[in-house]
Lab assay of single mutants.
Amino acid sequence: KQVQVGDEKYTFDTPEEARKFAEKVAKEKNLKVTEKNGNFHVE
């Protein structure tokens, strides 16, 4: 599963790991997490 933050992409083995990372980054940057096709976008 992938997490996209701006132009950066991070790959994780499980959706749970990806979601945790996305939520942590979103909180730090005051952004929101959206899920698209099983991948997460922080925007």
Score class of each variant (00 low, 15 high):
K1I: 15
K1Y: 15
K1Q: 08
K1T: 15
Q2D: 08
Q2P: 02
Q2C: 15
V3T: 02
V3M: 01
V3F: 03
V3W: 03
V3E: 01
Q4N: 10
Q4A: 06
Q4L: 15
Q4T: 14
V5W: 11
V5H: 05
G6N: 07
G6F: 11
G6E: 06
G6L: 09
D7A: 12
D7L: 12
D7F: 11
E8W: 12
E8D: 11
E8K: 14
K9W: 15
K9P: 04
K9Q: 11
K9M: 14
Y10I: 04
Y10T: 02
Y10M: 04
Y10G: 01
T11G: 05
T11K: 07
T11A: 08
T11D: 08
F12V: 00
F12Q: 00
D13N: 12
D13F: 07
D13C: 13
D13E: 11
D13I: 07
D13H: 08
T14H: 05
T14C: 09
P15F: 13
P15E: 14
P15W: 14
P15S: 13
P15A: 14
P15M: 14
P15N: 10
P15H: 13
E16T: 06
E16M: 06
E16S: 08
E16Q: 08
E16N: 06
E17N: 06
E17K: 05
E17L: 08
E17M: 07
E17F: 02
E17R: 03
A18D: 00
A18Q: 01
A18P: 00
A18K: 01
A18G: 01
R19C: 08
R19N: 02
R19V: 04
R19K: 08
R19T: 02
K20V: 10
K20W: 10
F21W: 08
F21L: 01
F21R: 00
F21Y: 07
A22N: 00
A22V: 03
A22E: 00
A22L: 04
A22S: 03
E23T: 07
E23G: 04
E23D: 09
E23M: 11
K24S: 09
K24T: 09
K24N: 08
V25T: 07
V25N: 03
V25E: 05
A26V: 02
A26Y: 04
A26K: 02
A26E: 02
A26I: 02
A26M: 04
A26G: 05
A26N: 03
K27I: 10
K27V: 08
K27A: 13
E28M: 09
E28L: 10
E28F: 06
E28C: 14
E28K: 06
E28Y: 07
E28G: 06
K29T: 08
K29S: 09
N30D: 08
L31C: 12
L31V: 07
L31P: 02
K32N: 08
K32I: 14
V33H: 02
V33R: 03
V33M: 07
V33I: 11
V33G: 02
T34F: 14
E35S: 07
E35V: 15
K36V: 13
K36H: 12
K36N: 09
K36F: 12
K36Y: 12
K36I: 14
K36W: 11
N37C: 13
N37L: 06
N37R: 04
G38V: 01
G38Y: 03
N39S: 12
N39M: 15
N39D: 08
N39I: 15
F40N: 02
F40G: 03
F40Y: 11
F40K: 02
H41R: 10
H41P: 03
H41D: 06
H41T: 12
V42M: 06
V42L: 13
E43L: 11
E43V: 13
